[in-house]
Amino acid sequence: MPGYDDHVRWALSTAVEGFDFTPVAGRVIDGPLPWDYRALARRAVAEATGPVLDLGTGGGEFLAGLGPFPPGSAATEGWPPNVHLARATLAPHGVRLHALPPEHATRLPLPDATFAVVLDRHEDYDPAEVARVLAPGGVFLTQQVGSTDGTRLNGALGGPGPDVPEGVALAPFAAGLTRAGLNVERAEEHEQGRTFTDIGAVIWYLRMVAWQIPDFDVARYDAPLRGLHAAFERGEQFRDVAPRFVLAARRPAR
């Protein structure tokens, strides 16, 4: 069985790219949701009568699996380490990537009333900007992570709170879309939970999700990490909170 130092070496030497959690498959386990965002997004793309836009595409891996795409489709990304990867991933699919400055990542450098579908998987957005770029009759589909996501892990390690916006929850986000002039057609939330099975997976996860504990460093958090590793060695697992909600809204046809 790998010891603590073995886990640390693996976690620090294994690449984090885009938003690909394959290295910790079966070791960081999100519980099931009552909806399937991938299936919903794939259906929206298949039914699109015009270009598709994906907000905060990460490395482009998720979006690339939803094609083929109508001409003029695009994606945005505001996290600089992901921009080159996303551009390379999406170019063969005819999707143009727009790199956004992180401080203005919700401002869309895109024309009015252009996109039949706007997708958003976990990215912050401005409802007014989404409504502006949607074509009449166009659909906005988003799955969001609640503000309390991962806070049990932060507490267990004695870290600061996640560097995420407060108030990310179903009711205010649905109200924001309504104020922007969109008709909300679906609004659903669920607490799915997240399970970690070993300390290597925890460390790698905190490297990938860098905003979870902004000052995370293995040496800085040595004592609580070792304490959590001891619990794993006793056969325990660590269960965190992972709230999610999904919204679908449509711009009126007229």
Rank of each mutant, 00 (worst) to 15 (best):
252 P>T: 09
145 V>A: 11
234 R>L: 04
204 W>C: 07
192 Q>S: 15
129 E>S: 07
192 Q>F: 01
120 D>G: 12
41 A>Y: 07
12 L>W: 02
70 P>T: 12
114 T>A: 10
154 N>Y: 02
87 R>Q: 15
140 F>W: 07
241 V>R: 14
143 Q>C: 04
34 P>D: 00
93 H>R: 14
122 H>R: 10
189 E>V: 12
47 E>N: 11
73 S>R: 10
77 E>L: 14
227 G>M: 02
129 E>F: 05
8 V>W: 01
34 P>M: 07
56 G>E: 11
135 A>N: 04
187 A>Y: 10
10 W>Y: 14
26 G>D: 10
200 G>W: 03
128 A>K: 09
4 Y>R: 05
117 V>M: 08
181 G>N: 06
230 A>G: 05
20 D>Y: 02
47 E>L: 13
20 D>K: 00
38 R>H: 12
173 F>L: 11
193 G>R: 11
120 D>V: 01
125 Y>F: 15
46 A>Y: 14
99 A>L: 04
211 W>F: 13
160 P>W: 06
206 L>W: 06
179 R>D: 15
160 P>M: 06
236 E>T: 00
65 G>N: 11
243 P>Y: 11
162 P>I: 10
76 T>L: 04
9 R>S: 12
229 H>K: 02
148 T>L: 14
150 G>F: 06
28 V>S: 09
68 P>N: 06
181 G>Q: 07
151 T>W: 07
46 A>T: 07
131 A>N: 09
13 S>R: 13
140 F>T: 01
49 T>K: 10
37 Y>L: 13
129 E>W: 05
165 P>D: 07
80 P>K: 13
172 P>R: 13
109 P>N: 10
53 L>R: 10
48 A>D: 09
251 R>M: 07
184 V>S: 09
27 R>V: 01
90 L>F: 05
9 R>K: 11
253 A>G: 04
103 E>P: 01
140 F>C: 01
93 H>N: 06
132 R>F: 09
72 G>S: 09
140 F>V: 00
87 R>E: 15
234 R>C: 04
68 P>R: 05
91 A>W: 09
203 I>M: 02
110 L>E: 07
9 R>L: 11
9 R>W: 11
227 G>H: 05
226 R>G: 01
142 T>C: 14
123 E>G: 08
189 E>K: 14
254 R>W: 09
223 A>M: 02
86 A>H: 03
92 P>D: 08
1 M>L: 07
10 W>S: 09
80 P>A: 12
140 F>Q: 01
14 T>G: 03
6 D>Y: 06
87 R>V: 03
101 P>K: 05
141 L>R: 12
219 A>Q: 13
55 L>E: 08
202 V>L: 05
142 T>W: 05
17 E>M: 07
